[in-house]
Simulated scan of single mutants.
Amino acid sequence: MLKRLRQVRVPLRAILDMLIITGLIIILTVIHYTRYNYSVDYHLLLQFGYYIPVIYAAIRFGPPGGIGSGLIITALYLLVMTDFQMLMGKEAKYTQWIEIALINGFGWFTGFLVQQERKANRNLIIALETKEDLLKKLEVEGQERLRLEAEVRRNERLTALGQLTAGLAHEIRNPLGIIRVTTQLLAKEKTEDLVVSEYCRVLQEETNRLNRLLTNFLNFARPKAPEGQLISLGTLVQESAELAKPMLEEAGLVLELRLSEAANITVKVDRDQMKQVILNLLINALDAQKDLRGKSIIIEGIQQPGWAGFAIIDQGLGISSETISNMFNPFFTTKETGTGLGLSIVYRIVEQHQGRITLSNTSSGGVRAEVLLPQ
C-alpha cells in the first residue's frame, strides 16, 4: 500500500514542480514584454530573476531540467534582448550575452551537482544495506559456530564417557551375572524358608534392574550403527504412537497427531532406533504432565527445504534455559529415579542419522522437542 502511494506521489510532485517552474518563467517573461518601454537597466536587472526557475529545475530534475529551462528562457527572452542591442553599449551587449550563458551554465552545473549528490546518496544507502546484510550473516554464522563448538565439546565428552562406561559396564556385568545365578540357585534350595525366598526375590529384582541400567549404558557407549531404510514419517509416527498408547491411556493423556503434508515425506532411517527416539521423547512429555489428566501431547509434522521431521509438544510447566542446555548431557536428569541417559541416547541416534534435535519452551509454557532429518 505504501509503495502504491509513493508511486502516485512522485508524478504528482513532478507535475507540481513543472507547473511552478513554468509559472515563474511565464511571469518573468510577461513582465519583460508588458514593461517593454522601461529602461534597459530595468530589463537587465529583471533578467537575474531567471536564475530562480533554472536553479529550481536543476535541483528537481537534474541536468536535463537545468539545461532545458535555460534554453527555453533563452528562446523566450531572445526577442527582447536583440531588440535592445541598438540601445546598449559594447560592454552592456557582452554582459547581456554573458548573463544568458551564465543562466544556462548555472542550470547545467547545478543539475550536475544534484545528480552527483543523489548518486552518492544511493551508493550510501546501498552500502548501509550491504553492511546490514553482512552483520546479519555474521550474526547467523556466529550462532552456527557456537552451536558447532558446543556439539564438538559434547561429542568429545560423550566419546570419553562412552569408553569409560563400556569398560565399567563390562566389568560389572560379569559379577552381576554370577550374583543373579547364585540367587536363583539359592531360591530353589530354600523354597521352604520364606524369609530367604523373599530376600532372593528382592535380590533378583535388583539385579535385573541393574542389568537394565547396564544395558542402557552399553547402548549409550556403543551405539549400534543405523540400518537405513525408506519409510514415510506418517508410518513411523503412527507405529511409535501405537506402542506408547497404553502408557498414555493409563496416564489419562491424549495423543494428537498433526502431521498434515509431512506425513507423506519419505526419510531414510533405522526404523527401530527412530521408534526409540519417539518413545523416549513421548515418555519425557508424559512425565512433564503426568498430573494433568485430560491434556494432550501433540506430534506435529515439520517440512523445511532439505529437511523433514516432527516435533513433540507437551503442556507441562516448561524447563529453565540452564536445564535445556544440559538436557543432552549424559547422567543429567531432573527425575528422581532417572539415569540421565535417555536423552543422551536420543541425541546420539539423531546425530548418527545426520539429523538435528532441539529443545525449547513454547509460548504456552510446555516444551517442544524438535527432530529434523535430511530428506
Rank of each mutant, 00 (worst) to 15 (best):
L12F: 06
L16K: 08
D17P: 01
L24P: 00
I27R: 01
I27V: 13
N37S: 13
S39W: 09
D41C: 01
H43I: 08
L45N: 14
L45Q: 14
Y51Q: 05
P53F: 04
I55L: 13
I55S: 00
F61G: 00
G65A: 08
G70C: 02
L71Q: 00
I72P: 00
I72T: 04
V80L: 11
M81P: 00
D83E: 00
Q85A: 07
M86N: 00
L87T: 06
M88Y: 02
K90G: 05
Y94C: 01
F112L: 12
L113G: 05
Q116K: 14
E117I: 08
R122G: 10
R122F: 08
A127E: 15
K131M: 09
L134Y: 12
L135D: 06
L135S: 01
L135C: 03
V140I: 13
G142M: 03
G142F: 05
A150F: 04
V152C: 06
V152M: 14
G162P: 09
Q163D: 09
G167Q: 11
G167C: 08
H170Q: 15
I179G: 05
V181H: 14
K188G: 01
L194R: 15
V195S: 11
R201W: 11
Q204H: 11
E206Q: 15
R212F: 15
L213M: 12
T215V: 09
T215G: 12
T215K: 15
P223S: 10
K224W: 07
A225P: 10
A225D: 13
P226S: 07
P226A: 02
L230F: 13
S232C: 11
V237R: 05
E242W: 13
E242M: 14
E242I: 13
K245G: 02
L253Q: 04
V254T: 08
L257A: 09
L257Q: 13
A262P: 03
N264E: 15
T266S: 07
K268H: 11
I278S: 05
I283S: 07
A285Y: 07
D287K: 14
D287M: 06
Q289F: 12
K290Y: 12
G294Y: 12
S296T: 14
G301V: 03
Q303Y: 03
G306E: 01
I313R: 03
Q315P: 01
Q315S: 12
Q315L: 02
T323D: 13
N326T: 10
F331W: 12
T339N: 06
T339E: 12
G340L: 04
L341Y: 06
G342T: 06
R348C: 04
I349Q: 02
Q352D: 10
Q354K: 15
G355W: 02
L359R: 01
S363D: 15
S364G: 01
G365V: 10
V367D: 02
L373W: 04
